[in-house]
């Protein structure tokens, strides 16, 4: 067992910080580290927190972390901010709003830039979570950049995903957009002391009733017009995302939010649901890693000028992209055996 690995397992904060850097840089040492600590993962509860910019994610992360600390749980926070696509640099400012947590040795905060590809972020996020998990933190809060596909990727790494909304951000339309509501295990309306909070809550409930098969069942029964079909699952089997109102900056609703997260955790603990979720997440992760590895292996064999020539031909319309890919595969990858 290498020194860094044993130090991380012993809860050494500096070692954890160094390991996180290795994982972020996808350095050669990272693979050995992850290999060694994998058996020690799976103990922490991973909570993804996402939502549009300005909904108060960082403040809510801070409030939730404080609530967990009050219960004696240790908390690691992974705060993801965007990398500039032009310079490769990033300003990571989430710590500004997490000031209240500093000085508490039961909290570890790490800022992470999105850097290059989406696939890279998903990999780095999962690996960083595993390090924090192995370091012994009870809860890991992952705050995402708040825009686009990364939300869904984070959901695939977390056990409980919170989607955070705030009044007055064009929620009614935003809520309809596919993807973001579907990944929510708990919906949060933050800044609930502001005008329009009732409308936001109502809009979210409405969207849930339309979009969520579980709540649709419940609604049909509620109105009493239809007899529930015999194959309808028992209501206790269904998780209907609750809508929680919070005011993160003064702690309103945070205890209720914590309770909702813990209820979801209890829900997943029953009847092998967690195993099923992990099975699903694992499949996605393995395919992603496989895809990345295969691309790298293939590209390592293709000279750069060959790629350039192919790209130029496509731009000149003398070759189409599908044919280009087929030609690359035919020439450079091992072909499968006949009939295999």
């Amino acid at each position: 067992m290498n020194d860094l690995l044993s130090a991380i397992l012993a809860g050494d904060r500096r070692a954890l910080a160094r390991g996180l850097t290795q994982v972020e840089n996808d350095s050669p040492q990272a693979a050995a580290l992850l290999d060694g600590l994998f058996p020690y993962t799976g103990r922490a509860w991973v909570i993804g927190m996402t939502g549009a910019p300005g909904t108060g994610k960082s403040s809510l992360v801070t409030a939730l972390a404080k609530a967990y600390r009050a219960q004696g749980q240790t908390v690691a926070i992974l705060a993801v901010d965007p990398t500039s696509p032009f310079t490769g640099g990033a300003i990571l400012g989430d710590r500004i709003r997490m000031r209240d947590l500093s000085g508490d040795k039961g909290v570890f905060i790490r800022s992470m830039a999105t850097r290059g590809s989406l696939g890279g972020l998903a990999r780095a996020t999962r690996d960083a979570i595993r390090l924090m998990d192995a370091a012994g933190f009870d809860r890991i809060l992952v705050e995402t950049v708040g825009a686009g596909q990364s939300e869904v990727d984070i959901a695939r790494a977390a056990y409980t995903t919170l989607v955070i909304e705030a009044p007055g951000l064009g929620d009614d339309v935003q809520a309809i957009k596919a993807g973001i509501l579907e990944i929510a295990d708990v919906l949060v309306v933050n800044k609930a002391d502001r005008p329009g909070a009732d409308n936001t809550v109502r809009a979210l409930r409405t969207m849930l009733e339309i979009g969520h098969p579980a709540s649709r069942q419940a609604m049909i029964r509620h109105h009493g017009q239809m007899v529930a079909a015999p194959e309808t699952p028992d209501e206790t089997n269904l998780w209907i995302p609750p809508v929680i109102r919070t005011v993160a900056i003064d702690g309103q609703g945070v205890d209720e939010l914590l309770e909702a997260v813990e209820n979801h955790r209890t829900h997943l603990a029953l009847e092998g649901r967690r195993t099923a979720l992990e099975r699903q997440q694992t499949e996605i992760e393995v395919y992603e890693r496989l895809r990345e590895a295969l691309i790298q292996r293939l590209l390592a064999e293709v000279p750069a000028d060959v790629i350039e020539a192919i790209l130029a031909r496509i731009v000149a319309r003398t070759l189409n992209p599908q044919a280009a890919v087929k030609a690359l595969l035919d020439q450079y990858s091992q072909k499968p055996k006949q009939g295999a």
């Binding site: 904060r13 500096r14 910080a17 990398t83 500039s84 310079t87 490769g88 640099g89 990033a90 300003i91 990571l92 400012g93 710590r95 500004i96 709003r97 000031r99 500093s102 000085g103 570890f108 905060i109 790490r110 800022s111 830039a113």
Partner: peptide, 26 residues
Amino acid sequence: RDAGMEVIYTGLRQTPEMIAEAALQE
């Protein structure tokens, strides 16, 4: 940032201990 670095900005009124701990974690 424009020079391609990753900059962690901690905000105002940091104690020496807060700065050292943030530098360690990051």
